[in-house]
Write a protein that binds this DNA or RNA. Structure first.
Lengths: 147, 147
DNA sequence: CTTGATGTAACCATTTTGGTTACATTGGTG
DNA sequence: CACCAATGTAACCAAAATGGTTACATCAAG
């Protein structure tokens, strides 16, 4: 215990992958391979494929198999928000309830669940609202501006 | 991999502990012990003490040692927001960057870090803003209302 | 039919999370 | 003063999450 800075990097990697595909296609290529993306993101191709598989189920990308296989965007970068990406890869909530149910005989133990759930719902809504404000086009613009 | 619903329950347990102490004191008791709180939250007293230790460092609670030892609020429930609790126990960010630095030769690999950091900063601000809206007095009111 | 890449399962090392034991320390009380 | 209940922490552990890696069946264009 004691160390923090947990959190996972999936949203970052997924945004990286999609942005990379978008830029690659914009430069005239049909599809991008998980190997190319993995090289840019400095991770393993399987990690990329796992994320893209989820993004594919969410309708954000399409894949082509066989020879000349690879990935392509299903929508323009401007039509994909970070919320879309987040929802595609992170079904779980940010905050968890008690690991084991609290004492139902205790007033606090009995009522804290619903009370915190209500708050967490609002927090998640705020988080989603904020993620929805940024599209991958915005991210790419930021990237190109800084280059 | 694959399962989700990660997230930790620390904020929930910490809010539970503080609310419990507040109600207990309101009923005329001087201090609450980690054992009592642990019984209500259905966890181990050491887990409670670990959290309260951090909350103590943040100035939200005080502890008394020796005989008649225990914990008491350093401020009224109405003067403690969930943001105060969150900051006391969760220094780390919600989203992480690449585990290994991306390819600096690649435009995306080079610029994605600052771009995502900017977004994440806004998201965290929104999350904190939402947590700041609720005080533990609000939580307790909710609990008592439902009882 | 060959080939290059997807789609997934499987396995593993590392880290996080939280539960548990253990124990030194504290300070009021009998 | 000795007792004792509870804090404050270290240490250890089991379970789960996170990502990296190998392996391989499948697919489809050439």
């Amino acid at each position: 215990m004691e160390s923090d800075v947990s959190a996972n990097s999936r949203l970052t990697i997924a945004a990286h992958a999609l942005t990379w595909i978008g830029l690659y296609q914009r430069r005239g290529h049909e599809v991008a391979t998980s190997e190319q993306i993995a090289a840019s993101a400095n991770t393993n191709p399987v990690v990329i494929r796992r994320l893209l598989a989820k993004l594919s189920k969410a309708g954000l990308v399409d894949s082509r198999r066989g020879a000349g296989a690879g990935w392509m965007l299903a929508r323009d970068l401007a039509a994909i928000t970070l919320l879309d990406v987040y929802q595609a890869i992170e079904p779980g909530p940010v905050f968890a309830m008690h690991r084991a149910a609290p004492d139902p005989e205790c007033v606090v133990g009995h009522g804290i669940g619903p009370a915190m759930t209500a708050v967490y719902d609002d927090v998640e809504a705020a988080l989603r609202g904020e993620l929805a404000k940024t599209t991958l086009e915005d991210v790419l613009r930021d990237i190109l501006k800084a280059a």
